[in-house]
Amino acid sequence: MQTLRCAIRAGAEPREARQQILAAVELVARAEGDAVPDLMRPHTHRLGYSGMIAVGEFRMTAYDLLVASGLDADRAADLVRQTADPADWD
């Protein structure tokens, strides 16, 4: 957030801040792991229910920060969604 604040104050394009935000989204998604097949709870992840709520809140915050960095809402949502998708990782 400090990087974003400094870029905005300087009137510069906040590319580094956006990269940091998206790197954090990817780290959280990696921590989340894949859904575990369970007939009683089809969307169970290793972080558990509370962890999944926190992941959702984190992604919304990342989205808000990307919008604050000057991206339009659709682009910010696409970036968060794509970054959180394991298919897009190395």
Rank of each mutant, 00 (worst) to 15 (best):
E16Q: 15
E16M: 15
E16S: 14
E16G: 02
E16V: 15
A17T: 06
A17P: 08
R18G: 00
R18M: 11
R18D: 00
Q19T: 15
Q19C: 04
Q19S: 09
Q20F: 01
Q20T: 08
Q20N: 07
Q20L: 13
Q20P: 01
I21Q: 03
I21S: 12
L22A: 11
L22S: 04
A23E: 07
A23G: 02
A24G: 04
V25D: 08
V25Y: 10
E26L: 09
L27I: 04
A29S: 14
A29I: 10
A29M: 12
A29N: 09
R30E: 04
R30Q: 08
R30S: 11
A31G: 10
A31L: 12
A31Q: 14
A31S: 09
E32K: 02
E32V: 02
E32Q: 03
G33W: 01
G33I: 12
D34A: 15
D34L: 11
D34W: 13
D34N: 07
A35F: 13
A35R: 14
A35D: 08
V36K: 04
V36G: 02
V36L: 12
V36H: 11
P37M: 02
P37G: 06
D38G: 00
D38Y: 01
D38I: 01
L39F: 06
L39Y: 02
L39M: 03
L39E: 14
M40A: 13
M40H: 08
R41A: 04
P42V: 09
P42G: 12
P42C: 15
P42N: 04
H43S: 13
H43A: 02
T44I: 15
T44H: 15
H45T: 15
H45C: 00
R46Y: 01
R46C: 06
L47P: 00
L47Y: 01
G48L: 14
G48M: 09
G48R: 11
G48D: 02
Y49D: 10
Y49W: 12
Y49I: 05
G51F: 05
G51D: 01
G51P: 10
G51Q: 04
M52P: 00
M52F: 04
M52Q: 10
I53L: 09
I53T: 06
I53W: 04
A54F: 05
A54P: 02
A54R: 12
V55G: 02
V55L: 12
G56N: 14
G56D: 13
E57D: 14
F58S: 11
F58E: 03
F58R: 06
F58L: 07
R59Q: 11
R59N: 02
R59F: 02
R59T: 01
M60Q: 15
M60L: 13
M60W: 06
M60A: 11
T61P: 00
T61N: 05
T61G: 03
A62D: 00
A62Q: 10
A62R: 09
Y63F: 14
Y63W: 13
Y63Q: 08
Y63V: 04
D64Y: 03
D64M: 13
D64N: 14
D64V: 10
D64K: 13
D64L: 11
L65T: 14
L65R: 15
L65Q: 12
L66F: 03
L66A: 03
L66D: 08
V67Q: 01
V67S: 06
V67N: 06
V67F: 07
A68R: 09
A68P: 00
S69H: 09
G70I: 07
G70W: 03
L71D: 05
L71E: 11
